[in-house]
Design a protein around this nucleic acid. Structure first.
Lengths: 232, 232
DNA sequence: TCAAAAGTGTTAGTTCTACACCCATGC
DNA sequence: GCATGGGTGTAGAACTAACACTTTTGA
């Protein structure tokens, strides 16, 4: 009967993994990239996989995801949300249910950390549009995470989580363009975001080759919007 | 280290639960209701809880959710989707990670089944707006599921999953009104849905006290929309 | 003064919303 | 015919998308 506890012999193991998005500058433009870890043991030894691990008994799933993420990138994400739980029988040789999270990392912090500590062992960043064949069902998972990111960018302001504390509207627009893969009208983009509560103008300006641009700051407090299951 | 498999002693158990929505007719109007199961053992013995169980080792999570649901209601849902995975350390005296699904049941089938077999033991339907204190974090979960249902009803046509095969636009509108808790303009509602691919008119009419109303049918094939992670 | 990015204004098209109105049926 | 729900038409508001135009800076 279904109410019986499973015995130790037929246990299903719980894993957490994370799809971590960040912008990394290529020669020409910024690219949306995710870090992958090379597997050092079977199954799929030698293949690239999403960073992940096993939650401790006294550790919540969110905490486990954040820890996993920190072990890979040595950074705290600016955004972290549960994506989906994958539990098909045949997704791994042993029965593993993976609770997958997705996260955004500020590009400036990634660069700073890499400059100081160098890239961690066995971790490399890959363009989301050019991933290699990954272990397990991780290509599928990464594709779904990307779909969710693109989707969510359309109706919330989380894309600011990929940028430093302060940024110009043009920089933010370029993030949207990179994530969505299409150009946006600068003036309409400005109006749209200036109207939203979630962006607050500062008195600083970014001075470059041309007319200085006002810097904006992301206002997480104003997030009344979509919210997860953790509010109620 | 996190890459080590957890031993049998510190295993985290995986459960599935389901929030099953259906419309049940009250004296006056239809009410949105969910079935709850009275717990027959500790912890929380005697309290009401979401239907659920333990997935078998050779059973995927979706299958486990469908089975769990069938054991409670003896019915196949017209819609079933993963909701969220809850894994806080203290949500249960032992460490349980619950993968929760939400589902829609056609009201006509629920009534038919109850007439034939009677209500299952220890199962009762409750108004979503008037739930008792539930076991574990199930009040929280039910609230989140309701939020997701109301949300999704806004941008997809799944509400038809609560109705019989064929229905009038007024019946469908009343479902929307019950779920959303507010009145909708009949003419605008009609235009909106007639424009969508997902609703196909039939040649039948519902004949009542007044002018007969055309019956419509839900076209699941046309669902190009939101999709889960199972497509890619 | 000129190039280029920052920022403003305007207009046409579309979608939303409220509501007036006609249609078909049972009584 | 008349009450009632089924179904159509339409005008104004709100939002979108495209693009012309002005402003401010470095060189």
């Amino acid at each position: 009967m279904s109410q019986l506890s499973p015995g130790p012999g037929d246990a299903i193991r719980v894993a957490v993994s994370a799809v971590i998005f960040s912008l990394r500058s290529d020669p020409d433009a910024d690219r949306l990239m995710i870090p992958l870890v090379r597997r050092t043991r079977a199954p799929h030894e030698g293949m690239w996989a999403l960073p992940g691990g096993w939650p401790g008994t006294t550790e919540g799933l969110d905490d486990a995801a954040a820890r996993t993420l920190a072990e890979t990138t040595a950074l705290t994400p600016s955004y972290l949300e549960q994506l989906y739980t994958f539990g098909d029988v045949d997704r791994s040789p042993t029965r593993v249910v993976s609770v997958v999270y997705w996260a955004l990392l500020r590009s400036d912090l990634v660069d700073a950390q890499r400059a100081v500590a160098g890239a961690p062992e066995n971790v490399e960043w890959f363009d989301v549009d050019d991933l290699p064949a990954l272990a397990f069902d991780h290509n599928h998972i990464a594709g779904y995470a990307l779909w969710r990111l693109r989707n969510k960018v359309g109706y919330s302001r989380i894309a600011a989580g990929l940028l430093p504390d302060e940024f110009t509207l043009t920089e933010l627009r370029e993030v949207y363009e990179t994530v969505l893969g299409r150009r946006l009208d600068p003036s309409n983009f400005r109006r749209l975001l200036e109207g939203s509560e979630e962006l607050v103008p500062t008195e600083s300006f970014r001075t470059g080759k041309h007319r200085p641009a006002r810097l904006y700051r992301y206002n997480a407090d104003a997030e009344v919007e979509t919210l997860g299951p953790l509010e109620a």
